[in-house]
Design a protein around this nucleic acid. Structure first.
Lengths: 168, 168
DNA sequence: AGGAAATATTTTATGCTTAAAATAATTTCG
DNA sequence: CGAAATTATTTTAAGCATAAAATATTTCCT
């Protein structure tokens, strides 16, 4: 069960410490995933039942809601942390359904500008309101005064992971 | 923008407080999702590149690794928090590839017992080792002494969400 | 100018995920 | 006993997700 044989990264740790840290890191990951899965599953279910809508579609609208003049299509995969190919059929359907428009730029015909329609904006606001209250309902039992603390911890975690990703 | 018009759930809150809490809850959810997405994406990438394997397949093996005598198939969707139908093709392929066996119970022919093979166990251990060190690498910059605190917070969050789900 | 590299987007192949319906075996109970 | 309800699992249809390859356009460079 020798794990700490490789060169220690910062400070030397004996086997038992290293093992304990491994376990804690794994537990953190499992808790994180469990919380996200739990909340995401419930939000997805409600989006479907109440609005016959999906979260990825809602996420696209949420991005466009903040950009009254529209957004270059290529910005969406970056902001939503998904692949570009993934977005194509989602945007296709949002256009079909009249929530957004997709117009090729005249300056650079590779580029497309996506923009929410008036109806899209209306639909988004209605759904966003429900989304907020669903979240409030799901998180109601978590003490309000600890929300900000947890947000800060997660921000730091996110930063730490990002840094680690940039190094490799 | 009237939001707090509905009857207040526990203690009365004025509009501004309610708005602030909504925002904090949304931020918490977005951070949680961002952290999980970031880590999951990287782990998935490495599983694919290093082992040509997927995380759902690994998750199934991880459950079976803790059960030397095997597991009733129906336990897997519960423990992994996925739908039963989802598991069928994943288990199919793990059987095809020789990592696990699936044998119908003689007492109740609806039930199937899933059990890891010797080779499955070997492959799992190899992958689990890498999985642990990848996680350690990704979380290296997050201070060790705060791991347990964050785990506790997430445990509480998970409990709060579960409670909210059971109520509805 | 004109070919090569870069950029934006779509297509393809594969796999995960869900919900709902279908199948099959067991249990319950009148 | 035998029909109805329950339980375990699979199938189906639809959508999300990725990686890798393809397409189309623009920029860079000589």
């Amino acid at each position: 069960m020798a794990v700490a044989k490789e060169s220690p990264p910062v400070s030397p740790k004996n086997g038992a410490d290293q093992e304990a840290e491994y376990r804690a890191q794994t537990r953190l990951w499992l808790r994180l995933l469990a919380c996200a899965t739990l909340i995401e599953g419930e939000l997805r279910r409600r989006f479907r039942e109440e609005f016959d809508f999906t979260m990825p579609r809602f996420d696209v609208l949420a991005q466009l809601d903040r950009e009254p003049s529209g957004l270059v299509l290529g910005e969406l995969p970056k902001r939503l942390m998904v692949s570009a190919g993934n977005l194509t059929p989602i945007v296709d359907r949002l256009v079909e359904d009249g929530y957004i428009t997709r117009t090729p730029s005249n300056l650079d015909r590779r580029v497309q500008i996506v923009c929410m329609t008036v109806e899209g904006r209306k639909a988004f606001r209605r759904m966003a309101k429900s989304h907020g209250s669903w979240l409030a309902e799901l998180l109601a039992e978590f003490p309000t005064e600890r929300l900000d603390g947890l947000i800060d911890e997660l921000d730091e975690l996110k930063g730490a992971v990002r840094d680690a990703l940039h190094k490799s």
